[in-house]
């Protein structure tokens, strides 16, 4: 599968995402410069973490206007798979490709730790290699990761299964104490209505080898590979 990892001025985790996908998973992964207007045949686009454009004005607000984002908006409108991690999640919200917004952590502190997240919906291209209810251990590192959306919109998203990941404690329960940043309803990751765009604050690309303290992040990337190959199989059998 071909993966394009976007590189904005100020991106930090692009190299780790390329390492995770290319070296660890053996996928075809390449960087996409923010000034480019072509996705070079990528079947999934990853917007990595970092501080794109210095996080000026609001996190993700300026990156949204870069040429590559126009291509990504078109790609997403055609059903293409897009994943935004941390700053990438913020950019997707600012670009209105995902609902809601990410605001300053409740504690006002930058948080860097390993957290538990529960898979709330495993019937999506982003989570299908995991089980519903499965708890993954993933690192977070952000100052502005508190997810907010209008209550009514959150209700509708929950009904449609768009909340894919929630912060939980070691028993798998979404308690306030286990909510690191004060996100509404402990939301850690959401998809759009069409389930082809996904944003999450935890970093799966930093959890792909035991030497890094865990490999649970692979589950999310493997889901995309799995869903891509099963949709190809469907296309092939339909063509036969």
């Amino acid at each position: 599968m071909k993966w394009g990892v976007v590189r904005f001025p100020g991106s930090l985790d692009d190299a780790d995402a390329l390492w995770a996908l290319g070296e660890v998973m053996g996928q075809e992964a390449f960087a996409l410069w923010h000034k480019e207007e072509s996705l070079k045949g990528a079947e999934c686009v990853v917007l990595p973490g970092g501080f794109s454009y210095g996080d000026y004005l609001r996190c993700g607000a300026i990156a949204r206007f870069s040429p590559i984002m126009r291509a990504i908006a078109r790609f997403a409108a055609e059903g293409g798979l897009v994943v935004g991690i941390c700053n990438g999640f913020q950019i997707l919200c600012e670009a209105h490709l995902l609902p809601g917004a990410l605001t300053r952590n409740r504690s006002l502190s930058f948080i860097c730790e390993r957290v538990s997240v529960r898979v709330e919906n495993a019937a999506t291209p982003f989570t299908c290699a995991a089980r519903k209810g499965e708890v993954l251990r993933l690192p977070i590192k952000h100052g502005e990761g508190r997810y907010v959306a209008a209550e009514g919109e959150l209700d509708a998203m929950e009904r449609r299964g768009q909340v894919l990941l929630r912060y939980v404690d070691e028993r798998g329960e979404a308690t306030e104490a286990a909510n690191p940043n004060g996100s509404m309803r402990s939301v850690a990751g959401v998809a759009n209505e069409r389930f082809n765009v996904f944003g999450l604050m935890p970093h799966p690309e930093h959890a792909v080898e035991r030497a890094l303290g865990g490999a649970d992040g692979l589950k999310l990337f493997e889901s995309l590979v799995l869903s891509r190959s099963s949709s190809q199989l469907r296309e092939e059998s339909a063509a036969r």
Partner: peptide, 14 residues
Amino acid sequence: TPRREILDPQGRAV
């Protein structure tokens, strides 16, 4: 300014 219904931790700290 942050909307009324949105928690403003910065405002609270100040």
